[in-house]
Design a protein around this nucleic acid. Structure first.
Lengths: 107, 107
DNA sequence: CAATATACCTCGCCTGTCAAGGTATATTTT
DNA sequence: AAAATATACCTTGACAGGCGAGGTATATTG
């Protein structure tokens, strides 16, 4: 990854929630999509991704269920909850604010 | 502080370097300036600030010297080094890139 | 049959933030 | 005169998130 992880920190959960707003998804795909959208400049490491899922689950922001693939590796799907959508909107707003403030501090 | 510290993380050092680009400064003042510029919505906690200074010093991005105040509390001043300016520019560029990428991921 | 891609997971380290505590001086309020 | 507030510095230890390193299992491609 070419972007310092400390710059991503605080946005990981939000990014995952974002990728769940349109449709349910699963870890591997979410990561692939992020890489595709950022030209492989950004990537959520496995361990980061799965620890984020545990956190989101614990906080009731996502639900999870096993896919019924009859072929290939099993997939654990995630869906965003109402609370998840709420938190997502809050996080986005906070990000907008933080962005502005940081920009105003960098000459 | 109203902005989640995880959103600041990764920018702390850059913000400190930014405030040293115009003129030497000291911890307490740097913090006051940040609060003034962000309407008190952002603040570097003491411990965070001073651990950042140690890091910047260790990495040769700032130099430090004691002020010669004849009245009031003593001040430890910091000045940015050439390497500091270099890293500052790099960090700013990286921030611009990270910003764009995160924005592109948030629907 | 080996390598690669898909797909999941855990453990334990590292690093940055910060709550809580401390020191010392100067000014303002009671 | 004493207490409170502002200025100004500092350290310790806990905590949380990122991730390197390791693991499992299935399907496809060379």
């Amino acid at each position: 990854m070419s972007i310092a992880s400390d710059l991503l920190r605080g946005n990981t959960d939000t990014i995952i929630l974002a990728s769940l707003t349109g449709h349910d998804s699963y870890g591997y795909l979410i990561n692939k999509e992020i890489m595709a959208k950022t030209d492989s400049q950004m990537e959520l490491k496995d361990a980061t991704l799965y620890s984020a899922f545990r956190r989101l689950e614990k906080d009731g922001l996502v639900n999870t269920y096993w896919g019924d693939e009859e072929v290939g590796a099993r997939r654990r799907y995630y869906s965003i909850t109402d609370k998840g959508r709420e938190v997502y909107e809050q996080n986005k707003a906070e990000w907008q604010k933080a962005k502005q403030m940081i920009d105003s501090l960098l000459v």
